[in-house]
Design a protein around this nucleic acid. Structure first.
Lengths: 353, 353
DNA sequence: TTGTAAGCGTTATCAG
DNA sequence: CTGATAACGCTTACAA
């Protein structure tokens, strides 16, 4: 493996000169430059990034710590980060490892020195204490943290507001008994969505009924099971709000099995607007979140210079919008509608390969 | 930022001793160890990974170079890599940058030194020449390369075989005029799938008709447009094989708009078995590929020791299986079927969040 | 069990 | 314009 010394020797210059050539310093004569480049190319030399980083203190990499790496949600977040990072000449060092504080600590340590900033997504616990020791050395942005930190920026989804939109929509359609399938017990998104659900009910003069709060865990199967439990309730609700689309899909399956028609017998809505929501039958009324923007903004907060008059940590909340389709009985037709009409309702999900 | 020297000074030992403590060397007394650890913790010290890497030549990172980072296909591949890498204590340094040879070269250079191996996915061009200069210094595995390299391992999908399965299925159902929507002109997966399509037709005694080969680009909209073109054909085929599921979904939309019933008037099949394929109406007959396995195997080839008797480069091909649903008129019922029956047809797509 | 000192492959500083 | 040489923060012989 050729090093700078080999090139220096080969082109009869000092290593400093070789370094200058590769750093496009103007302080090197064209002749020397060419000679060095020729030798380097013959030797297959390229500066070692690690060695470079050690002295420059720049790695051009951002650490991304997330609890999982699959599913449309996470992949879209990372996609957003990737685009923004690449525009700024940065790589992403990803590590799936923040389902609890110990794992997160280990992960942060393991990327220490290798990244210039950190994006942390820890949906189930407060990552602030884990990050505290690194404040000042590793700029960190949280995605969807449950607690706002005084020292770190964050980007979040307007979970409560989105849930309120859904519930209000349901209320406007005449529903008075609205159930919810919640997400994991300690998940912030889930808690906030439930909070929005409750507050919208109260605003409508309806007292939230604990029996109507069915426990789920964001998985499709938990939605299926929660819907089955709901069906066994003595007093059945007329509408069901699933805290995410996967669970809504699962619930739809259970309702179909039970012969319950949607939306005629029961209205159902989800949250996230994953591509699937559009295609399922009936098409799912849900809450749209610009998921790639979550990642993009995180990178921007980390990398883009901010006005000097330091306002402390920035906490952004991305807006949510209601996407009315047919699963609540108010929307458009659902699967099979033409490309033309469909686009008036919601843009087709990105089709890639 | 505390360095090893600060800790050494603070605990009145040499930096070598501090290093030993953090490398869990047995050669350090319990007392010293405790003292060092205490000081380190007070100072918030943790070894700098970059400096460590420079001397050990280990980075515990794998470079992942792909043309895109979104969509179910890519995210599932990365998910597979991530799981396998993490099991082995490795991070993934991802870089979306291999849509042509220049970009790929730049990307490889930029990760040189920072990674112990490379996974390259370049579906549209031969990456072998780009990698050649690095052979010997950076072990590299290709995913789905068009050409098998003598020097580098690869993992591929049995594209041609999968296409053959589909076409045979269609032929078995009585179809004699079968059209195809192809993918991007230079995309290897696309070319191989078309090859499988043609060879299966010939095996069935049908001469492939160029007019039945409709150009697409793997995007949903291109499938929509290709289907529209197909509908204008004087002699309409009775079956349509879309080279990927996204295009099949697009085609389904166009057929619906035109009032063409599927599968009654036209049979349609896809490739990839993305989660959506299961949910769409009619449920899509397609070819299943274990996509995370693609990423997992790549990591394994890179990291897992191989028997010493070097057999040169390994080229693996992951099998494909036909998933019969209802879009060709042969399968099960489609969307809305109960969870129970569904699982006999195909496992529910992973539901996460 | 601990310390000294020589690197790892660069960039940065300072002379020339 | 070019060259010595000292870092960067760590690991690892080799000595003690």
């Amino acid at each position: 493996m050729a090093t700078i010394r080999d090139v220096a020797r080969g082109s009869k210059v000092s290593i400093a000169t070789v370094s200058r050539v590769f750093n496009e310093s103007a302080l090197v004569s064209e002749g020397t430059r060419r000679k060095v480049l020729a030798v380097a190319s013959r030797l297959g030399y390229w500066p070692n990034g690690i060695a470079r980083s050690l002295i420059t203190n720049r790695t051009h990499a951002l650490g991304v710590l997330m609890p999982d790496f699959s599913g449309e949600f996470f992949s879209e977040v990372v996609h957003g980060m990737d685009v923004a990072a690449r525009e700024r000449g940065f790589h992403l060092l990803v590590s799936r490892s923040s389902s609890n504080a110990e794992e997160l600590t280990a992960a942060v340590r393991s990327v220490h020195g290798r990244v210039e900033g950190l994006i942390v997504m820890a949906p189930d616990f407060d990552a602030t204490p884990v990050i505290r020791p690194w404040v000042g050395r590793m700029p960190t942005v949280f995605i969807n943290p449950g607690h706002t930190s005084a020292t770190n920026d964050s980007v979040s989804i307007a979970n409560a507001e989105g849930a309120r939109l859904v519930v209000r929509h349901l209320v406007d359609l005449g529903h008075r008994s609205i159930a919810i399938i919640t997400g994991p017990e300690f998940n912030f998104d889930s808690l906030q969505r439930r909070e929005g659900y409750r507050s919208a009910l109260r605003q409508a003069g309806i007292e939230p009924d604990p029996a109507f709060e069915l426990a789920g865990d964001f998985s499709e199967s938990s939605g299926f099971e929660a819907a089955e439990r709901m069906l066994r309730l003595k007093a059945r609700p007329s509408a069901l709000f699933a805290s995410n689309d996967y669970m809504a899909v699962g619930a739809l399956g259970a309702l179909h099995d039970a012969g319950v028609r949607v939306p005629e017998d029961l209205a159902i809505a989800g949250f996230d607007d994953i591509p699937l929501a559009h295609y399922i039958n009936p098409a799912l009324t849900t809450v749209r979140v610009d998921i790639p923007a979550l990642g993009r903004r995180a990178v921007q907060l980390l990398l883009d210079p901010r006005p000097a008059h330091d306002p402390g940590a920035v906490h952004e909340t991305l807006p949510t919008t209601l996407v009315v389709r047919s699963s609540c009985g108010a929307g458009s037709r659902g699967v099979g509608e033409s490309r033309g009409t469909r686009s008036t309702e919601s843009p087709a999900p990105p089709a890639r390969r």
